[in-house]
Amino acid sequence: MPFITNKNTTENVDIFYEDYGKGQPVILIHGWPLSRKSWEHQVWKIVESGYRCISYDRRGFGISSAPWSGYNYSALASDLDQIITQLDLEDVIIVGFSMGGGEVVRYCTDFGTDKVAKTALISSIIPLVKQKEDNPSGVAEKDLQGIQNALEEDRVGFLKEFSKGFYNFEDNKDKISQAQLDYDFVIASHASPRATIETAKAWMHTDFRDELKHVDVPTLIVHGDSDATVPIETSANQAAKAIKDNVFTVIKGAPHGLNITHKEELNTILIDFIKS
């Protein structure tokens, strides 16, 4: 099975990846608390459109290594850097979903964009989740602490319910099956408990607003206007104002997990951007 080993952090970390197709490389970074498997409906479309598609499990998730520490965004971005470096990739298109948008931005900050052709932020947490005086639309500190408490007290119980809000399940039963919810639960529940909590802290508390200037390549921003998990006001709307060269597309009625519920629409938007 293909792994790359990141030896540039406090301990060696093995990152599992899948690599399909030929042509310009497109790297897919999954959201929390899932794995590369969440990109199922995008991988085949990217490969059949004539591109090389690489998806990987974030450290602590899927079958990648689960170190005790090293879940801040610079550590996570270093894993992405090692994939690009060890696979000798150039002219890369990096796509981050939800918390994966953080790796996209931090990679641009820590490593620059010499090897990057384009980026994409899908249902992304960028630039800031937490509510602050200058970010009034963000999620209140008490609510974020509530998530952390729930993960520490009954992680699997929290995850069992989380995916319903992820997809706005009650409003999208014609677009999402109970089997998909069950599948997500299996993936999320098998992730490292420590990684699940520590990466949650990373996406909850990291402020990327000052880093958006480093995203200096063409960027696609896609968000659903019904995203109850990452409100559009504190994420995509702000990102679109701060990233100079961007294409911003709002999918009407789409929830956070629009890569499943609105997969055809997202695939068309993504492939058109990649080809542009």
Rank of each mutant, 00 (worst) to 15 (best):
T85F: 13
V105F: 06
S64I: 08
Y56H: 11
K252Y: 13
G62E: 01
I46G: 01
G70A: 00
E264K: 14
Y73P: 02
N246W: 11
Y73K: 06
K7S: 11
G112W: 15
L212P: 05
K37H: 14
L128N: 12
K175T: 06
A117C: 09
A242G: 07
K115G: 02
V43R: 00
V105D: 07
N8E: 13
R52I: 03
D207A: 09
S276A: 11
E103P: 06
D79H: 10
V217H: 14
E48Q: 11
Q145P: 02
V217K: 15
I126D: 00
S192Q: 08
W39I: 00
G138M: 14
G138S: 13
A200W: 11
L266V: 08
P67N: 02
L144F: 07
G224V: 05
D91Q: 11
Q24P: 03
P193M: 13
P33H: 10
G96M: 07
V26N: 01
I84G: 01
S55R: 05
Q82Y: 15
F158C: 01
I27A: 04
N135Q: 13
W203P: 00
D14G: 04
Y56R: 09
G138E: 09
E161W: 11
I93T: 09
E161T: 13
M204A: 09
T249C: 04
T261M: 03
H30I: 06
V222F: 12
Y20H: 06
P231T: 12
E152A: 09
K132D: 09
N135T: 15
H214K: 15
G257Q: 03
E264A: 09
V26W: 02
H262W: 08
E233S: 15
S78Y: 12
D225L: 08
F273Y: 14
E211S: 12
G70K: 07
G21I: 01
P127T: 01
I269R: 02
L76I: 05
Q180L: 05
P2V: 04
I243S: 10
V43A: 00
D210W: 04
N246L: 08
